[in-house]
Design a protein around this nucleic acid. Structure first.
Lengths: 177, 177
DNA sequence: CACTGAAATGTATAACTATACAAAACGCTC
DNA sequence: GAGCGTTTTGTATAGTTATACATTTCAGTG
């Protein structure tokens, strides 16, 4: 069973927006899928479902199977991929209001979260560390003393172990949605 | 149950040919798969299995799943497809034996190893930090929570001080050997 | 040749994806 | 709002792919 009430509410709200903008909710979801597939590793449809849920799209695996077919997305050794080469042309029309949130970039790039003492280490897809660190810096979490990012790893330094544990669980919640 | 006798006979015959040509039967099958995938529509692994059987290769779906993985073939709306664009160039020397080991890169680049609390800092020659960190990530040592690399310094975050000491000594051993 | 470790394969099944069908939501017209 | 054809979605399940484990084959070595 799913949480029908909140889902229904969310759907209605989303539909309201959709009508105002003249775009269907399905079309918006397709754009979100393209974005996720292009910028992060998506290994199966259930993973995609969880990532979409964090963005407000709550659908079942069956719907995603249909979406993927309609978008002509293919699956290979590196997870799902946009159609051949120019898979971007249609990917536009993505509104970005200000810097992305930690939740957003973690959904897109985050892979693993681990803690050691007062530090938290986040593994991301290649090139994902900088955006994650930037969003953390921007949101300015009180537990976080500072961040350092390489190519696919972010080191988050916290006040102490307890705060690190808090940060770890917050990030892990986002990731596991 | 399958017809073991004829299968066995065919295998032996094929192996005989294989030896003469100096190529393994698996390699021959891989080439046949590439050819079929490139020139005809293959929608699933069972179809591929039947097509291969006509060419004298009698294997199960499981083996084909492994072959497809090794050949880095992807599946999309148009059936299976060879890897990215130049699907042919790779025809030879497919299996590379992965990234270099930590030992190899440390011998090449490593200069000094020091520890502080649960962290280990490795100094390398200029530009050596990334390869060292990459090999550490690849080998996925259990004591290591994560790594971050600059130009000539790698920071290795470990579970705790004890693990960091272990890592320190392992790296130092490589360096001094 | 017997033994040994590595590589390749088959079997059985878990994991994942596609689809038939039914229900709901939509966009119309009246 | 009621009626009606179309579109979208969920449910249940069939279809497809990946993988743990066991077995067989292969290449060396003593």
């Amino acid at each position: 069973m799913y949480i029908y009430t909140s889902a229904a509410a969310r759907l209605r709200a989303a539909l309201c927006i959709a009508r105002e903008k003249g775009t269907s909710i399905k079309y918006q979801r397709h754009n979100a899928i393209r974005e996720l597939v292009a910028s992060s590793l998506v290994s199966n449809q259930d993973e995609l479902r969880r990532k979409l849920r964090r963005r407000g799209f709550e659908v079942t695996q069956a719907t995603l199977s249909r979406d993927i077919h309609e978008l002509r997305i293919s699956k290979g050794p590196g997870g799902y991929a946009l159609p051949n080469g120019n898979g971007n042309g249609t990917a536009t029309a993505v509104e970005d209001d200000g810097p992305p949130t930690v939740a957003e970039v973690m959904e897109s790039f985050g892979m693993r979260v681990r803690r050691a003492m007062n530090q938290v280490v986040v593994r991301t897809v290649m090139g994902g560390a900088q955006p994650v660190a930037a969003s953390l810096d921007y949101e300015d979490w009180p537990e976080v003393v500072g961040t350092i990012a390489g190519d696919d790893t972010v080191l988050i330094v916290c006040q102490d172990s307890r705060h690190a544990t808090d940060v770890e669980s917050k990030l892990r919640t986002i990731l596991e949605s």
